Simulated assay, not measured.
Amino acid sequence: MATEKIFPMTQAGKEKLEQELEQLKTVKRKEVVERIKIARSFGDLSENSEYDSAKEEQAFVEGRITTLENMIRNAKIIEEDEMTSDVVSLGRSVTFIELPDGEEETYTIVGSAEADPFEGKISNDSPIAKSLIGRKVGDEIPVVTPGGEMKVRIVEIK
């Protein structure tokens, strides 16, 4: 049997996933079942786009529930005391400047389960995070991204 993937995350990230799971199970699932019931009442299911749409949504919701349950079951909580303060690691925020004259950017490195680039949270599996992990303030590092290679200097780790 294959080993299940471990999902490193903060306690807050795990709680967010648990809230989403609860919402899907208690609210969304019931809404979708109700949509299916209503769509069935429209008659012929073979030409019923409402029914097809509701069934697709049901499949998505059930798939997401399964994914969340797996992530929560295999979560590895990153403890604050496991992180050294002077090295970029999972759970840390890192500020860097793109060289030679770029703007400062700050990201928090999190597990893939709680990554949200719009909130400044990048996955530890991302090219930027992989390049930064294990580095210290002042380090200048090449970072290979889908848009090409850039060089950055770490200015702060929190």
Rank of each mutant, 00 (worst) to 15 (best):
R29C: 06
K30R: 13
M1L: 14
K76A: 03
I154M: 14
I38K: 00
K76T: 04
S53R: 04
D52Y: 00
R40M: 11
Q58M: 15
G147N: 12
G148I: 02
P146R: 01
R92K: 09
V87C: 04
M150H: 06
K130C: 05
A75W: 13
S93R: 10
D52L: 07
Y51P: 04
V33L: 15
T26P: 08
F60Q: 14
D101E: 06
E47N: 10
E105N: 14
I109Q: 12
E15V: 15
P100R: 02
T67H: 11
V110G: 02
E69D: 08
V137P: 06
N48G: 00
S53A: 08
P100I: 06
G111K: 05
M150T: 11
F118I: 14
A39H: 00
F60E: 15
D81S: 13
T106V: 03
N70F: 12
L17S: 09
E140C: 08
A2W: 14
K121M: 08
E20Y: 01
E98M: 04
E140W: 06
S123K: 12
A75F: 09
R153V: 14
I109T: 05
M83N: 00
D52R: 10
E104H: 05
A59Y: 12
I157N: 02
Q11V: 11
R92Q: 04
M9F: 06
E47S: 10
V32C: 01
D81T: 08
L68H: 05
G120A: 08
E18V: 00
R35H: 13
N74I: 02
S85V: 04
P146C: 01
T10R: 06
E98P: 02
S89R: 01
T26Q: 04
K151G: 02
K136S: 07
D116L: 15
A2C: 09
S41R: 03
L45T: 07
K30T: 09
E50Q: 01
R153F: 15
M71N: 02
I65D: 11
I36G: 07
V144G: 05
K130P: 04
L45Q: 04
A54L: 03
F42C: 00
